[in-house]
Nucleic acid binder design. Sequence first.
DNA 1: CGCTATTGACTACAAGCGTAGATGATGCGA
DNA 2: TCGCATCATCTACGCTTGTAGTCAATAGCG
Lengths: 122, 122
Amino acid sequence: MSEKISEAELVVMEALWEQSPQTANDVADRVAADREWSLQTVKTLLSRLMSKDVIAAEQDGRRFLYRPMVARDDYVASESGRLVNRLFGGRVSPLVAQLASQDQLTAEDIAELEEILKGLKS
Amino acid sequence: MSEKISEAELVVMEALWEQSPQTANDVADRVAADREWSLQTVKTLLSRLMSKDVIAAEQDGRRFLYRPMVARDDYVASESGRLVNRLFGGRVSPLVAQLASQDQLTAEDIAELEEILKGLKS
DNA sequence: CGCTATTGACTACAAGCGTAGATGATGCGA
DNA sequence: TCGCATCATCTACGCTTGTAGTCAATAGCG
Protein backbone atom coordinates (compact mmCIF):
# COMPACT_ATOMS: atom_id res chain seq x y z
CA MET A 1 0.00 0.00 0.00
CA SER A 2 1.36 3.37 1.00
CA GLU A 3 5.14 3.42 0.83
CA LYS A 4 7.47 2.61 3.61
CA ILE A 5 7.92 5.21 6.32
CA SER A 6 11.49 5.45 7.51
CA GLU A 7 12.62 5.76 11.10
CA ALA A 8 13.23 9.50 10.90
CA GLU A 9 10.02 10.08 9.01
CA LEU A 10 8.14 8.24 11.71
CA VAL A 11 9.26 10.77 14.29
CA VAL A 12 7.63 13.46 12.18
CA MET A 13 4.50 11.37 11.75
CA GLU A 14 4.23 10.96 15.50
CA ALA A 15 4.29 14.72 15.88
CA LEU A 16 1.47 15.03 13.39
CA TRP A 17 -0.54 12.26 14.93
CA GLU A 18 -0.22 13.97 18.27
CA GLN A 19 -1.83 17.03 16.82
CA SER A 20 -2.88 18.19 13.40
CA PRO A 21 -2.86 20.21 11.35
CA GLN A 22 0.43 21.87 12.12
CA THR A 23 2.85 24.13 10.31
CA ALA A 24 6.37 22.96 9.58
CA ASN A 25 7.55 25.07 12.48
CA ASP A 26 5.11 23.53 14.90
CA VAL A 27 6.23 20.10 13.85
CA ALA A 28 9.87 21.04 14.22
CA ASP A 29 9.26 22.36 17.71
CA ARG A 30 7.40 19.27 18.73
CA VAL A 31 10.04 17.02 17.24
CA ALA A 32 12.80 18.92 18.99
CA ALA A 33 11.84 17.11 22.19
CA ASP A 34 13.22 13.84 20.76
CA ARG A 35 15.77 14.80 18.18
CA GLU A 36 18.25 17.60 17.62
CA TRP A 37 17.19 18.34 14.09
CA SER A 38 17.39 21.58 12.21
CA LEU A 39 14.21 23.06 10.83
CA GLN A 40 15.42 22.20 7.33
CA THR A 41 15.69 18.55 8.19
CA VAL A 42 12.13 18.46 9.40
CA LYS A 43 10.98 20.22 6.25
CA THR A 44 12.75 17.70 4.08
CA LEU A 45 11.11 14.88 5.95
CA LEU A 46 7.74 16.55 5.56
CA SER A 47 8.27 16.85 1.86
CA ARG A 48 9.29 13.20 1.55
CA LEU A 49 6.21 12.19 3.48
CA MET A 50 4.18 14.28 1.06
CA SER A 51 5.57 12.47 -1.94
CA LYS A 52 4.80 9.20 -0.24
CA ASP A 53 1.21 10.39 0.13
CA VAL A 54 1.06 9.68 3.81
CA ILE A 55 0.51 13.30 4.74
CA ALA A 56 -1.22 16.17 2.97
CA ALA A 57 -0.84 19.93 3.16
CA GLU A 58 -3.34 22.67 2.87
CA GLN A 59 -2.21 26.18 2.15
CA ASP A 60 -2.82 28.78 4.81
CA GLY A 61 -1.63 32.16 3.67
CA ARG A 62 1.99 31.72 2.77
CA ARG A 63 2.59 28.65 4.81
CA PHE A 64 1.25 25.11 4.81
CA LEU A 65 -0.67 23.15 7.33
CA TYR A 66 0.24 19.51 7.35
CA ARG A 67 -1.94 16.66 8.43
CA PRO A 68 -1.55 12.87 8.35
CA MET A 69 -3.37 10.93 5.67
CA VAL A 70 -2.96 7.56 7.32
CA ALA A 71 -4.29 6.83 10.76
CA ARG A 72 -1.77 5.90 13.38
CA ASP A 73 -3.79 2.79 14.12
CA ASP A 74 -3.51 1.63 10.54
CA TYR A 75 0.20 2.18 10.45
CA VAL A 76 0.72 0.49 13.78
CA ALA A 77 -1.45 -2.40 12.69
CA SER A 78 0.50 -3.00 9.53
CA GLU A 79 3.86 -2.72 11.26
CA SER A 80 2.86 -5.09 14.02
CA GLY A 81 1.56 -7.52 11.46
CA ARG A 82 4.79 -7.33 9.51
CA LEU A 83 6.86 -8.06 12.61
CA VAL A 84 4.73 -10.96 13.64
CA ASN A 85 4.99 -12.42 10.19
CA ARG A 86 8.70 -11.84 9.79
CA LEU A 87 9.82 -13.13 13.13
CA PHE A 88 7.12 -15.39 14.46
CA GLY A 89 5.62 -16.99 11.40
CA GLY A 90 2.45 -15.02 11.89
CA ARG A 91 1.79 -16.42 15.35
CA VAL A 92 1.13 -13.94 18.11
CA SER A 93 1.62 -16.01 21.22
CA PRO A 94 5.35 -16.59 20.69
CA LEU A 95 5.76 -12.84 20.55
CA VAL A 96 4.12 -12.42 23.90
CA ALA A 97 6.04 -15.35 25.30
CA GLN A 98 9.19 -13.67 24.09
CA LEU A 99 8.34 -10.38 25.72
CA ALA A 100 7.25 -12.12 28.88
CA SER A 101 10.58 -13.87 29.17
CA GLN A 102 12.28 -10.50 28.98
CA ASP A 103 10.15 -9.24 31.84
CA GLN A 104 8.65 -6.65 29.55
CA LEU A 105 5.20 -7.42 30.85
CA THR A 106 4.03 -5.15 33.62
CA ALA A 107 1.38 -6.20 36.09
CA GLU A 108 -0.90 -3.81 34.32
CA ASP A 109 -0.20 -5.48 31.00
CA ILE A 110 -1.05 -8.83 32.46
CA ALA A 111 -4.35 -7.58 33.80
CA GLU A 112 -5.19 -5.98 30.49
CA LEU A 113 -4.26 -9.05 28.55
CA GLU A 114 -6.63 -11.06 30.67
CA GLU A 115 -9.35 -8.60 29.84
CA ILE A 116 -8.62 -8.88 26.17
CA LEU A 117 -8.71 -12.65 26.28
CA LYS A 118 -11.92 -12.62 28.22
CA GLY A 119 -13.45 -10.46 25.55
CA LEU A 120 -12.29 -12.73 22.78
CA LYS A 121 -13.61 -15.91 24.28
CA SER A 122 -17.17 -14.78 24.42
CA MET B 1 24.74 -3.42 20.37
CA SER B 2 25.48 -5.52 17.32
CA GLU B 3 24.68 -3.55 14.22
CA LYS B 4 21.41 -3.46 12.43
CA ILE B 5 20.52 -6.43 10.28
CA SER B 6 18.75 -5.43 7.09
CA GLU B 7 15.76 -7.18 5.59
CA ALA B 8 17.77 -9.07 2.99
CA GLU B 9 20.44 -9.95 5.49
CA LEU B 10 17.80 -11.37 7.77
CA VAL B 11 16.81 -13.90 5.13
CA VAL B 12 20.38 -15.16 5.18
CA MET B 13 20.42 -15.23 8.96
CA GLU B 14 17.27 -17.31 8.98
CA ALA B 15 18.97 -19.85 6.76
CA LEU B 16 21.88 -20.01 9.16
CA TRP B 17 19.68 -20.24 12.21
CA GLU B 18 17.86 -23.11 10.59
CA GLN B 19 21.10 -24.98 10.33
CA SER B 20 24.72 -24.23 10.92
CA PRO B 21 27.46 -24.25 10.01
CA GLN B 22 26.87 -24.05 6.29
CA THR B 23 28.92 -23.13 3.25
CA ALA B 24 27.94 -20.17 1.11
CA ASN B 25 26.45 -22.60 -1.37
CA ASP B 26 24.33 -24.32 1.22
CA VAL B 27 23.01 -21.00 2.36
CA ALA B 28 22.26 -19.93 -1.19
CA ASP B 29 20.34 -23.13 -1.83
CA ARG B 30 18.35 -22.77 1.30
CA VAL B 31 17.62 -19.13 0.60
CA ALA B 32 16.52 -19.92 -2.92
CA ALA B 33 13.25 -21.17 -1.49
CA ASP B 34 12.29 -17.60 -0.59
CA ARG B 35 14.18 -15.36 -2.94
CA GLU B 36 15.50 -15.50 -6.48
CA TRP B 37 18.99 -14.41 -5.62
CA SER B 38 22.20 -15.16 -7.40
CA LEU B 39 24.92 -16.94 -5.48
CA GLN B 40 26.93 -13.71 -5.57
CA THR B 41 24.20 -11.81 -3.82
CA VAL B 42 24.12 -14.31 -1.01
CA LYS B 43 27.89 -14.14 -0.69
CA THR B 44 27.80 -10.37 -0.46
CA LEU B 45 25.20 -10.57 2.25
CA LEU B 46 27.31 -13.11 4.12
CA SER B 47 30.29 -10.83 3.95
CA ARG B 48 28.28 -7.88 5.22
CA LEU B 49 27.01 -9.98 8.08
CA MET B 50 30.61 -10.89 8.81
CA SER B 51 31.66 -7.27 9.06
CA LYS B 52 28.72 -6.64 11.33
CA ASP B 53 30.03 -9.44 13.54
CA VAL B 54 26.74 -11.26 13.65
CA ILE B 55 28.12 -14.33 11.93
CA ALA B 56 31.52 -15.96 11.92
CA ALA B 57 33.31 -18.18 9.47
CA GLU B 58 35.69 -21.01 9.98
CA GLN B 59 37.87 -22.16 7.13
CA ASP B 60 37.31 -25.63 5.78
CA GLY B 61 39.73 -26.40 2.99
CA ARG B 62 39.24 -23.70 0.46
CA ARG B 63 35.79 -22.70 1.53
CA PHE B 64 34.25 -21.28 4.64
CA LEU B 65 31.69 -22.59 7.04
CA TYR B 66 29.47 -19.86 8.34
CA ARG B 67 27.62 -19.85 11.61
CA PRO B 68 25.55 -17.25 13.46
CA MET B 69 27.10 -15.40 16.35
CA VAL B 70 23.86 -14.09 17.73
CA ALA B 71 21.07 -16.38 18.82
CA ARG B 72 17.80 -16.03 17.00
CA ASP B 73 16.09 -15.59 20.33
CA ASP B 74 18.27 -12.63 21.19
CA TYR B 75 17.67 -10.99 17.87
CA VAL B 76 13.96 -11.58 18.04
CA ALA B 77 13.86 -10.28 21.57
CA SER B 78 15.58 -7.07 20.70
CA GLU B 79 13.46 -6.48 17.62
CA SER B 80 10.25 -7.13 19.48
CA GLY B 81 11.36 -4.83 22.23
CA ARG B 82 12.19 -2.13 19.71
CA LEU B 83 8.79 -2.36 18.12
CA VAL B 84 6.96 -2.27 21.40
CA ASN B 85 8.94 0.76 22.43
CA ARG B 86 8.60 2.59 19.15
CA LEU B 87 4.93 2.07 18.59
CA PHE B 88 3.37 1.30 21.92
CA GLY B 89 5.41 3.27 24.39
CA GLY B 90 6.85 0.07 25.78
CA ARG B 91 3.48 -1.37 26.72
CA VAL B 92 2.71 -4.87 25.50
CA SER B 93 -1.02 -5.09 25.95
CA PRO B 94 -1.87 -2.45 23.34
CA LEU B 95 0.09 -4.50 20.85
CA VAL B 96 -1.96 -7.56 21.54
CA ALA B 97 -5.13 -5.51 21.52
CA GLN B 98 -4.10 -4.21 18.16
CA LEU B 99 -3.45 -7.64 16.75
CA ALA B 100 -6.64 -8.96 18.28
CA SER B 101 -8.67 -6.28 16.58
CA GLN B 102 -7.20 -7.35 13.29
CA ASP B 103 -8.26 -10.94 13.94
CA GLN B 104 -4.67 -12.01 13.92
CA LEU B 105 -5.21 -14.12 16.99
CA THR B 106 -5.93 -17.75 16.32
CA ALA B 107 -7.78 -19.90 18.81
CA GLU B 108 -4.48 -21.58 19.47
CA ASP B 109 -2.88 -18.25 20.23
CA ILE B 110 -5.59 -17.46 22.70
CA ALA B 111 -5.13 -20.75 24.49
CA GLU B 112 -1.40 -20.27 24.63
CA LEU B 113 -1.71 -16.74 25.86
CA GLU B 114 -3.83 -17.98 28.69
CA GLU B 115 -1.14 -20.45 29.56
CA ILE B 116 1.49 -17.76 29.55
CA LEU B 117 -0.56 -15.54 31.79
CA LYS B 118 -1.24 -18.35 34.16
CA GLY B 119 2.46 -18.95 34.42
CA LEU B 120 3.16 -15.33 35.13
CA LYS B 121 0.65 -14.95 37.87
CA SER B 122 2.13 -17.59 40.08
C1' DC C 1 52.20 -30.12 -14.84
C1' DG C 2 48.64 -27.39 -16.84
C1' DC C 3 43.61 -26.32 -17.22
C1' DT C 4 39.18 -25.67 -15.49
C1' DA C 5 35.77 -25.18 -11.99
C1' DT C 6 35.03 -23.36 -7.53
C1' DT C 7 35.22 -19.91 -4.05
C1' DG C 8 36.02 -15.76 -1.55
C1' DA C 9 37.34 -10.69 -2.22
C1' DC C 10 36.79 -6.50 -4.48
C1' DT C 11 34.11 -3.34 -7.12
C1' DA C 12 29.84 -1.36 -8.82
C1' DC C 13 25.75 1.07 -9.05
C1' DA C 14 21.19 2.76 -8.44
C1' DA C 15 17.78 3.75 -4.90
C1' DG C 16 16.63 5.22 -0.31
C1' DC C 17 17.89 7.61 3.94
C1' DG C 18 19.69 11.12 7.33
C1' DT C 19 20.99 15.54 7.56
C1' DA C 20 21.21 20.07 6.01
C1' DG C 21 22.71 24.38 3.12
C1' DA C 22 21.38 27.61 -0.58
C1' DT C 23 17.85 29.79 -3.21
C1' DG C 24 13.89 32.07 -4.34
C1' DA C 25 9.25 33.82 -3.41
C1' DT C 26 6.37 36.65 -0.57
C1' DG C 27 3.82 38.98 3.04
C1' DC C 28 4.47 42.56 6.47
C1' DG C 29 6.21 46.43 9.00
C1' DA C 30 8.42 50.96 8.47
C1' DT D 1 7.34 51.25 -1.67
C1' DC D 2 11.56 48.84 0.12
C1' DG D 3 13.93 45.78 2.92
C1' DC D 4 13.65 42.00 5.96
C1' DA D 5 12.01 37.95 7.97
C1' DT D 6 9.73 33.78 6.92
C1' DC D 7 8.49 29.91 4.16
C1' DA D 8 8.82 26.18 0.88
C1' DT D 9 11.65 24.15 -2.78
C1' DC D 10 15.86 22.57 -4.84
C1' DT D 11 20.22 20.67 -4.36
C1' DA D 12 23.74 18.10 -1.97
C1' DC D 13 26.39 14.54 0.05
C1' DG D 14 27.89 10.65 2.50
C1' DC D 15 25.97 6.21 4.15
C1' DT D 16 23.31 1.92 3.74
C1' DT D 17 20.83 -1.45 1.07
C1' DG D 18 19.66 -4.56 -2.66
C1' DT D 19 21.52 -6.75 -6.30
C1' DA D 20 25.20 -8.45 -8.89
C1' DG D 21 29.61 -8.63 -12.04
C1' DT D 22 34.60 -9.38 -12.22
C1' DC D 23 39.02 -10.92 -10.45
C1' DA D 24 42.38 -13.64 -8.33
C1' DA D 25 43.64 -17.73 -5.84
C1' DT D 26 43.50 -22.50 -5.67
C1' DA D 27 42.28 -27.42 -5.51
C1' DG D 28 41.48 -31.26 -8.12
C1' DC D 29 41.28 -33.71 -12.57
C1' DG D 30 43.37 -35.37 -16.61
